[in-house]
Design a protein around this nucleic acid. Structure first.
Lengths: 257, 257
DNA sequence: CGCGACTAAAGGTCAGACTGTTTGAGGGTC
DNA sequence: GACCCTCAAACAGTCTGACCTTTAGTCGCG
């Protein structure tokens, strides 16, 4: 995204600026948008407004260049932009081409993870911001999970807990811990929650988790997880949310800059 | 994102697969990654691990091509990918070049907005998912806002409310309504919340808001907004959250497929 | 001193050729 | 007729080398 985002309109007229008629142009300092961005914008617009739907095959790059009146290189740069936003996907070979793609949740999560990671690197985001967002999402997610849980979720949670309890290595423990929280989010059945919560959690684990938390700390984590699972299993939404709140408040100490 | 995301590692070895030694290679069907993606991946890695920090100026495209052993066009395609993810930005002119950029929250919001919009277009996300996520975020956000509000926030809220109340046109009302909710999020002082909540709200407004909600409905909205502002102004966190919950539950009806 | 022309450096664009990948069609073999 | 091999076509991927445009500094004229 960034350049050429959705809400930006009113820029197509750049091309019609040849006339040296006054045209005071408020104070737009910068010049005309690069051609590859204009092409990307137009194609994106076609995708967003539904003119091109998922699965649709675009003309070959050479033809697109002809249509837009630009060279193939320019078209390709435009396509790279769209592809990196998950809007299209390219395939080689005679049946290949550029296809309008449906956005993959994992893709969005990955993007969010790197973005949040970088923003927390500068001072755009603080650790406190991230912890707070996490609690807002996961506490209520635990409640929802309790309401909607299915046997397979509870089974998966207990299995993850068991593995976490018996694992030695730090990295293994981290993975299971992450898995545990991931299952709860998934049990809400809300894809949007997954997309937003997972990256927050991953950034916390990979950038802010203290390397030297005592053994006893993890033992307590195990007990708290058990409480959470029990309440989810029982369908006790408020209890699960409360247990999650307690859990998250306590493990705040495990994260620092 | 999508191709070449952060957490995906273990793929660099694609290049070292020339040896015809067994190497059963599970079932990777597809070939080696395109050069532009490999270049993008490597540069991204340098940015993520902090080797290249915000403001750093990369070598000119031609030089980069030399460094990686690829042509300038390939480098440019890689740079388009990174630029569209907000990791770099290019500037023309003699003092120009490619600079490592800090991720802009607005950029991330824009990306999320189009992604959520498209996912809700296919059946990856339902309207219910989005409404639910919104409530999870905004209800607690209202509570936080009450705890942390500053005079300017309260002033801005009352001003937006006033404008909303006296506005006629639908589009104006929508804008003010959106502005109202935006200020509350901002008053939490948590940038991550802004980044995640704004796009959710914008998708709801632009894709799911019924065009034919009765006049009386909006009058009720105005009253509910007033209650929310009063409680935020009073620093009543629980009251504000409760009022927001009531408000959001009621306006669910204004959204449909 | 100031202002305009020149210049260098960088990204932006183009044209054209070649490479690599994938599939389907055609033809040959059992 | 079923199977396999070869070949050609249709794409995206890559490269080369040229030229255009933007921008800031520099030089020199007034």
């Amino acid at each position: 995204m960034g350049q050429g985002s959705t809400p930006s309109t009113a820029r197509q007229n750049d091309a019609t600026r040849a006339t040296p008629s006054a045209a005071p142009s408020p104070l737009p300092v910068s010049r005309l948008r690069p051609a590859y961005q204009q092409v990307a914008d137009q194609l994106r617009e076609l995708i967003l407004n539904g003119s091109l739907t998922s699965g649709h095959r675009l003309p070959p790059e050479a033809d697109l260049g002809g249509d837009f009146g630009v060279s193939r290189s320019t078209v390709r740069e435009a396509l790279r932009v769209l592809a990196s936003q998950g809007l299209v996907r390219t395939v080689r070979g005679t049946t290949g081409g550029t296809f309008v793609s449906h956005v993959e949740p994992d893709q969005v999560s990955d993007y969010l993870e790197t973005s949040i990671g970088l923003m927390s690197g500068s001072d755009t985001l603080t650790l406190a911001d991230i912890l707070e967002a996490r609690e807002m999402l996961e506490v209520r997610a635990a409640g929802l999970a309790a309401r909607r849980r299915e046997p397979r979720h509870v089974d998966a949670l207990r299995a993850a807990m068991e593995r976490e309890k018996h694992s030695r290595g730090r990295s293994v423990k981290f993975n299971e811990h992450r898995h545990f929280h991931g299952i709860i989010i998934e049990a809400t059945g809300n894809g949007l929650l997954t997309v937003m919560t997972e990256p927050v959690f991953r950034v916390l684990q990979s950038r802010f988790l203290s390397p030297d938390v005592p053994r006893e700390f993890w033992a307590q984590v195990d007990r708290e997880h058990e409480t959470i699972v029990d309440r989810i299993d029982a369908g006790d939404a408020e209890g699960a949310a409360e247990a999650m709140q307690v859990h998250l408040s306590r493990i705040r100490d495990a994260y620092h800059d």
